[in-house]
Design a protein around this nucleic acid. Sequence first.
DNA 1: TCGATATAGTGTCTATTCTACACGAACTGC
DNA 2: GCAGTTCGTGTAGAATAGACACTATATCGA
Lengths: 225, 225
Amino acid sequence: MKRPELSVAVDLVVFTVRAHTLEVLLVRRGIQPYRGQWALPGGFVTTQESLEAAARRELAEETGLKGVYIEQLYTWGEPKRDPRGRVVTVAYLALVPAARARVKAGSDAAHAAFQPARQPPRLAFDHAVIVARAVERLGTKAEYSTLPLHLLKEPFTLSEVQEVYEVLLGRDLDKRNFRRKILALDALEETDVMRRDGAHRPARTFRLSASRPYLLKERGILFPF
Amino acid sequence: MKRPELSVAVDLVVFTVRAHTLEVLLVRRGIQPYRGQWALPGGFVTTQESLEAAARRELAEETGLKGVYIEQLYTWGEPKRDPRGRVVTVAYLALVPAARARVKAGSDAAHAAFQPARQPPRLAFDHAVIVARAVERLGTKAEYSTLPLHLLKEPFTLSEVQEVYEVLLGRDLDKRNFRRKILALDALEETDVMRRDGAHRPARTFRLSASRPYLLKERGILFPF
DNA sequence: TCGATATAGTGTCTATTCTACACGAACTGC
DNA sequence: GCAGTTCGTGTAGAATAGACACTATATCGA
């Protein structure tokens, strides 16, 4: 059994929801190949770090963010996917609240930006495929889990929760039905701060109830509805 | 950006359902480390083949099977998971009908065998974790998809279908409700051959209807029930 | 050949869940 | 204090889930 050595990379699909749009973090490549094109942030895995650690490191380098939600998405390893040679890439999906979704200070404005995830610009390598799969995965998880809550900064209002679900699912939801269902999951707890912004009635705010995980496989499935 | 070179392997979790038990294919390691211990079949990815091709090659080497259902499960890459050095492994999940689940002729009997997947023997490396995750994934997919049909050889009876679902879900299902639901998916079509085995009424048999994919995300969710 | 035995195949009723739908409440700003 | 805006709430009809038991059809052996 021989052991050919390959390069292993991690790529990050960092999502946020802003202005009723699902956005993904892209960086402009400074080197060949695909120099000047948009691509996912990422980099090679060093010998001593775990895959997830490598992903978090890259995320911190681009955005300065730590402790956000991250999960492994899929691994791509077609022999020709990188013209430089054989590179296997492990893609990770990360969710950041819009309020925290800033490109790291020090990067010039053109270097990195959040852009529409469903109609991204032309991307380097097979990154368009990776983004498409991540979008699909997120949509699927919105159907049965509270994962989308990671796109919000606590405390949040139920209208904000509904907005992220609508964006991920790509359709409008009935307000009363949505609120009934999301509260029935018993995953949210009311805070005592009210959100007042604008000339209208203030909204109650919520945070995750301490006893609940984000993903609910148990009954209490969110959808269909 | 430096490019450390790592070894990339594929490991296979090959499932079958036999005698109301979920079984997984294991091989006895002939070399160090973990020599003599049970492990998942697998091997290193060569420079010219894709990851899935490597997985299919390993599967064929152990079982002689081609064209079975296979999907990528997850990628493990902790720095210390293999004492020989840094090995990133991409695990694949494969489903084979019991009628085809044979270890390749030429392997000695002790070399490879299907064994209970939920209480496997002590496994090499982190393979127990991999098996556990595969079992969980299969159970989850049984809740909303027709993926378990890959565990059956066509044509099959509805009782056989129910059996695999029961094994994957770990609970008994009501016969009438199950048949109503599975048929409502419109994923099965009746054949004209009857299954007669034993001293009782023969059963209709079915195959997958040509127009249907195995996985159904659309409504018509199978469970809860 | 007839009875015992084993699995196949089928329908209904009740409880729960889904879905559609509209208006008063509470605040700001002019 | 009025206009404008978002917040917050209940119900009724439709669809789906879930519990439940008996007849049909074959084989086998007495």
